[in-house]
Design a protein around this nucleic acid. Sequence first.
DNA 1: GACACCTGCTAACTTTCCTTGGCATGTGCA
DNA 2: TGCACATGCCAAGGAAAGTTAGCAGGTGTC
Lengths: 115, 115
Amino acid sequence: MSAASPPTGDDLVRVLATLANPHRLRVVAALARERAYVSGLARQLGISRALLQVHLRKLAAAGLVTARLELSEDGKAMNYYEVEPFVLTLTPAVIAAAVETLTVPDSGEQPGAQE
Amino acid sequence: MSAASPPTGDDLVRVLATLANPHRLRVVAALARERAYVSGLARQLGISRALLQVHLRKLAAAGLVTARLELSEDGKAMNYYEVEPFVLTLTPAVIAAAVETLTVPDSGEQPGAQE
DNA sequence: GACACCTGCTAACTTTCCTTGGCATGTGCA
DNA sequence: TGCACATGCCAAGGAAAGTTAGCAGGTGTC
């Protein structure tokens, strides 16, 4: 979802939950400037690799960043992340539309479900 | 923040965290159609009043909805909620700008803080 | 008075998220 | 061989969020 495509309810919740975190916002901001590999980005942000990796995984799961494995000149495997050029506009109307496709947590999973 | 004013980092996190919840999205969607009072809205959404009240409070704290206490014809106190016409556009660039004003959780609170 | 409707609050439980530390893998270079 | 760099994973504790149940108050009507 890199454009202003109307998000489904579940996708919207996932993206919002992913973005609702200072560390992950910093990661997106850093990658918006230029792509980076895990260890370097961890140093740049001043957080541990393990922590960064968890956040990167969530961002990737939400489709906000993508990973690309490359080999550096000296033969080391570098996992470069870059941000996805998403555009998400949030208004009450957009939310009302997305809610139509919200999955009920427990019962079923039919896309056309509503009450 | 009812317009596309550049959000501060902390505000952005707060709004995103508030919106990242199915119940709260449903509340916003319902209030986008028409304003409602607590008990009626709870019935409409099929959730308990206590639960709805918690979510309404969070939405109000984030500035997404507002409350207005009124008296019905038969003299009962009704707390009507209505949605705030917010417009929030999310892109990597917007996030990068917001991150500049992110508060560090522990150390200080200076806006110009960096590492 | 009993009932139905409205409002709010708190305590307590459950679940999820965040974070750290350690361990394992691989590479190239002195 | 040992060090420095890269990658990943898993377990465990602490913190925060979500949810329920129960309590309190108010009004008007039968």
